[in-house]
Simulated scan of single mutants.
Amino acid sequence: MTTLKDVADQAHVSRMTVSRVINHPDKVTAEVKELVYQAMQSLNYHPNAMARALVNNRTQIVKLLVLEEMTTVEPYYMNLLTGISKELEGHQYALQLVTENSFEIGSCDGYIITGMRNEDYEWIRELKMPFVLFGENRYGYDFVDSDNKMGGELGTRYAIQQGYQHLIYIGIDLAEPFEYSREAGYLQVMQEHGLEPRIIRSENHSTQIQNYIMEHWADYAENTIFICASDRLALGVERAIITMQGSIPEQYGIIGHDSVFLDQVAFPKLTTVKQEVAQMGGLCAKMLLNKIMQNNKPQGNCVTQPQLIIRDTTK
């Protein structure tokens, strides 16, 4: 039976180093980790995660708590799950997906929480275990998110550069930080250019905004662009323009936000502001693991930069 000493001997390092690679890989150089991992693979050595959990008084389990209806934002959460699970696997942690009604069933070492609304923070602040929020907040809790304000700016600046005369922001009708930030980016750029903002807010459903645009079609002059807070809204706007026989992108432009899936299946394909959701999932896991190792020490926030992906719905 292969032992820790066997791995150490093959990798020409100490047993302490092998233990550190297994238990605290973030504290070991990439070169040393590669040597140890190669030795483990060669010897078919698999660390006993159960034994390590008992020694460390941990469960080796992280729970992802989703506080909104996932079917309204699929496949967004699949990308998030992928990023979280890949990072946890490298630290021999398991991931459990739970809901608000089941999150207290069974033990874990910490939580990643997403889909928060204002009413959720009352009980979130009572949590004693380490947790990280996926999504910006204004309560000082550790979080990971994309720079939503920058995303709003990127889309709006590009629309102006492309010569669209009428820039309409289609927002999600939610009193939440990410929506405020995306809208703030639009407003800032409009103000910088001395342009009058125009905002429409809708639930994040493509059919609802499609019907609205069609009902108010006479209000939208040619050379209008719709800057949307989500790809789902952008898809609804696109369908409305096509139904009303408008020309995309010559007469009407569309910019979405998220770039997870809908932007690629839409036709024409959507110009959109891309969030690296899988990457952010990995960052959530890394931040939470650091917090667990550091006895719940605050980690602050991590904000990634979005990217404008130019496709067929803009000039």
Rank of each mutant, 00 (worst) to 15 (best):
N56V: 03
T114G: 06
E100F: 01
M50P: 00
Q96G: 01
L64V: 07
S102R: 08
S85P: 00
L64F: 14
N48L: 08
K86Y: 07
M50Q: 15
Y76K: 08
V66Q: 04
Y77T: 03
L81N: 04
L54S: 06
T114L: 06
Y111R: 02
I113H: 09
G106V: 07
T99G: 13
G90T: 10
S85V: 05
E89T: 10
Q41Y: 00
T99F: 03
L95S: 07
L95Q: 04
Y76G: 01
L67V: 08
E100S: 10
V66Y: 05
V55R: 15
G106M: 08
Q92R: 15
N56D: 12
R52P: 00
R58G: 03
I113T: 05
I105K: 13
T82P: 00
I112C: 06
N56G: 09
P75A: 08
M50T: 14
K63R: 13
V55N: 12
A94N: 13
P47M: 07
Q92A: 11
T71E: 11
L81V: 13
E104V: 11
E100Q: 14
H91E: 15
L88I: 03
T114Q: 05
Y93I: 08
T114H: 03
K63F: 09
M78N: 11
M50G: 11
N44M: 10
Y77I: 03
C108W: 01
V55C: 04
F103C: 03
G110K: 07
Y111Q: 07
T59Y: 07
F103E: 08
N101V: 02
V98A: 04
Q60P: 01
S85F: 03
S107T: 14
T114W: 02
Y111S: 03
Y93D: 09
I113Q: 03
Q92C: 07
I113A: 05
L88N: 01
M78C: 09
A49G: 05
H46F: 11
Y45H: 05
N48T: 04
I105V: 14
L88F: 06
Y93G: 05
